[in-house]
Design a protein around this nucleic acid. Structure first.
Lengths: 344, 344
DNA sequence: CTGTTAGCGCATTCAA
DNA sequence: TTGAATGCGCTAACAG
């Protein structure tokens, strides 16, 4: 590992003590200009690089933060991780990254590992917990600045950056309703997930505001399950005329189902979804979605964390920041607001 | 940082020396069962967690690897990072992650930072270097195991995991040619990028094998530039009847252009691309692509790195591993191999 | 089986 | 302005 010059080597070559080297390198003004030059020359000559491990241990400060996401193959999480990493880089911090695969135990294990590595803080997209409270509530994390992203942890002191899930879902549903649909169905993952339950609530509120009966289908995240359940849903006698999908994965699954059934929105059915995705506007027609500011979300989370790191232990209760969502009307609901009047 | 119990606290409570604690915790057999129990009880009681920083410093072994990708918002890179991270987790290693934004200087800076943190090895998707050799050839990295992914570094000793770029591009181009197209155009980013020049070569070879003149357009990665240049290309009198796009970004850009022109492949033009992407099969018709085994790519890179870590410094020259690419025929070229005979 | 001594590479404290 | 002693938290090497 350290096949490199150490500070003592530099000191030896420059004819000073290690303290002087340390001072010279850290910009301490109490070093004469001559000495500083001698030290820098020696540093150059020996290609000295400080050992950050030793520095961290001594200074009790690691200049690292940790990120835990469910995974990186979901583009939404990847964009969040990217944004966080950018901010960290700007602050000259390193990022330790890990994935939980939505398993609370893995999340806990990885968070603990990071703690043992003395990360100064954590940004976490909490894993799905169906039974019991988050393992991150454990005592060992009590003193660690933690910001949760996309999903809050109930009863925690953590800062949390969220989006207007309920409002967004309501917007999307209302869009479908405003186009004359009465039987608008909701398609979501388990309501154990915060984002899902809030979006579900938004949908329900929109329906009930019009005196309509909510029509909800909950599926697992596999394509197979969506395929089965959505097909079933669409085969009923009073089948829905419009679908609202609670995230981009389900929107894509649904598109597969509709494709398999030879249905092309908005022709026989209207479709809108929560979450924009890369090629939503390249579909024919484009898919109408409620979009969230992913990049800003990650950026904000990181900035809040760095704010906390700079605070004196004044650990007030966690603050919640909610970012806006926005409806992007394309063609998949039959609305006429596409660029050139056609359903793109 | 360390507001936690230290090993000496555990030792004190258990009435033994820190060495005994260390031994008990690290599974050293030279500890009596009674003592071990006493130690473990104390550990439990004080909620002791070892300080990995100190351990790393002392053991000269950090149990961390670094990953540097151009960015994480490109799904291809995100999938690679995800796969690498999984493998690291399996080996109980931490992952330090950083982005280069395709800037060699940033790449160098981040790699250096990781080196100072004593990562044991690096997986890098090398940043685009138009002028001069990679900065990773610098002396400080001489002893560090490095695996480059997706792109090799010329003249380096690094292991490298690549895909059959040339062969894949040739396959894709030949597919278009086999459907009767003569004027097949290539659309790529700068040939300074390894993946681009090799794919370009594959395309050219396919054309020349049929005695056809290659027709290449090079664009920057912005949508605007693609928009301008592709529109120009398609407006020529002898405009191409088929397009081969060198990566998924360009395929998507091209779809935007075609959409703006009201052209829908395979009707007025055929389209194929290198790189599969999330919704390629949801387009109408689905987009024919040459796909690469992204996940396996990342996994292999990580495994090769861990192999190197377990080798005794027998640092033979870098090995190159090339993974296969595969043509996935959908509807965008007019071939008839879609599921139900229609162009999905 | 257990403890003592020493030191990983650095910076804080105090003294000169 | 500089240096010596000390210790961050841990484990390797040796002693007992």
């Amino acid at each position: 590992m350290s096949r490199f010059a150490r500070m003592s080597d530099v000191a030896g070559l420059a004819g000073v003590s290690t303290m002087t080297v340390s001072r010279a390198l850290n910009g301490n003004p109490n070093v004469s200009e001559v000495t500083r030059q001698r030290v820098l020359a020696a540093v150059e000559r020996l290609r000295y690089q400080p050992n950050e491990l030793a520095r961290s241990l001594r200074e009790q400060r690691s200049r690292q933060i940790g990120i835990i996401v469910p995974n990186l193959f979901d583009p939404f999480f990847a964009i969040l991780a990217n944004a966080i990493s950018q901010v960290a880089q700007k602050h000259s911090y390193s990022v330790v990254l890990s994935t939980s695969n939505e398993l609370p135990e893995a999340e806990f294990a990885e968070a603990s590992r990071m703690l043992r590595r003395n990360v100064e803080g954590l940004v976490i997209i909490p894993a799905h917990t169906s039974r019991g409270p988050s393992l991150l509530l454990a005592h060992e994390f009590e003193q660690l600045p933690i910001v949760t992203l996309d999903r809050p942890i109930e009863g925690s002191r953590f800062d949390s950056i969220l989006v207007e899930n309920e409002h967004g879902a309501r917007l999307g549903t209302e869009h479908l309703l405003s186009l004359g649909h009465k039987r608008v169905a909701y398609l979501g993952l388990t309501d154990d997930l915060y984002t899902m339950s809030t979006r579900h609530r938004g949908y329900t509120a929109a329906m009930e505001a019009r005196g309509l009966k909510p029509l909800s289908t909950i599926v697992s995240s596999t394509l197979e399950d969506a395929m089965t359940k959505v097909k079933l849903l669409l085969s009923e006698k009073k089948a829905p005329t419009a679908l609202f999908c609670a995230n981009n994965l389900l929107t894509r699954h649904t598109l597969h189902v509709l494709q398999a059934l030879g249905m092309h929105p908005p022709e026989s059915i209207a479709l809108a979804g929560f979450d924009d995705f890369e090629t939503a506007d390249l579909m024919r027609p484009g898919i109408t979605v409620v979009c969230q500011p992913s990049e800003e979300l990650g950026q904000t989370a990181a900035e809040v964390l760095f704010m906390r790191l700079n605070e004196q232990g004044s650990s007030r209760r966690g603050r919640i920041k909610i970012l806006p969502t926005e409806l992007i009307v394309r063609g998949s609901c039959g609305a006429n607001e596409t660029k050139n009047g056609k359903h793109l």
